[in-house]
Amino acid sequence: MAFIPEPISRFFHRTASPPHFYALANRLIPWLSVLLVLGLAYGLYGGLYLAPADYQQGDSYRIIYIHVPAAWMSLFVYVVMAIMGGIALIWRMKLAEVMLISSAPIGAGFTFIALVTGSLWGKPMWGAWWVWDARLTSELILLFLYLGIISLYGAIEDKRSASRAVSILALVGVVNIPIIHYSVEWWNTLHQGATVSKLDKPSIHISMLIPLLTMAVAFKLYYAVAVLQAAKLELIKREPSAQWVKNLLETSA
């Protein structure tokens, strides 16, 4: 790695070693949790109480404070997993494998929440729980990709080869991400176009936008806390007899 300065590359190698990562995660989790609670509290209060009702949908639109951040996160987590998959395949880095598989159930959860809240909103607003338009279908495929990754990992006994298989699946599935994002532009869909994540000015009033962005940050913080917790556990499960795990048990005992 000639083009990466020595201190940075050393930082990455240190962080990637399980005991260092474990300690770092332990230090980060309390701070992230505090920020998460604050963000969630303000986001929910702002979204459900401070923000005005919509001119057409009334109060029903408030589901976007859950639906939209969850849908963004379903894409974000998948991209993180694909990057981790690439790192795991190229550098054979254990921590990347662990981060990939620890992210999968969280991403699946976000996707599921996005689909369910969208459906609950669709019935009164569109008049249908579900339609097979390009946006909804591609998001459903994303849920199946997550579930596929989780089951493939569980089906292979040796976790290093399981990680390799899962990394390839994660990379292959990444082609679905731009399809989900641009589906509302490329095809006629029942789902409306992008409101915030477009180059133009957002088509949402600022008083509604601020709680929405706060919720988006809170969801990211939740992901960070959840993935660090899951990765800590996965690291121990993978090498239960490693020296650093023994040291950990001794110090906590």
Binding site: P52, A53, D54, Y55, Q56, Q57, Y61, I64, M125, W126, G127, A128, V131, L190, Q192, G193, A194, T195, S203, I204, H205, S207, M208
Partner: peptide, 18 residues
């Protein structure tokens, strides 16, 4: 046989719409 409403991407308070 079936009519579905397509929502647009605009969100604003009623006063702003007025």
């Amino acid at each position: 046989e079936e009519v579905l409403a397509k929502h647009d991407e605009n969100y604003m308070p009623p006063e702003v719409a007025d």
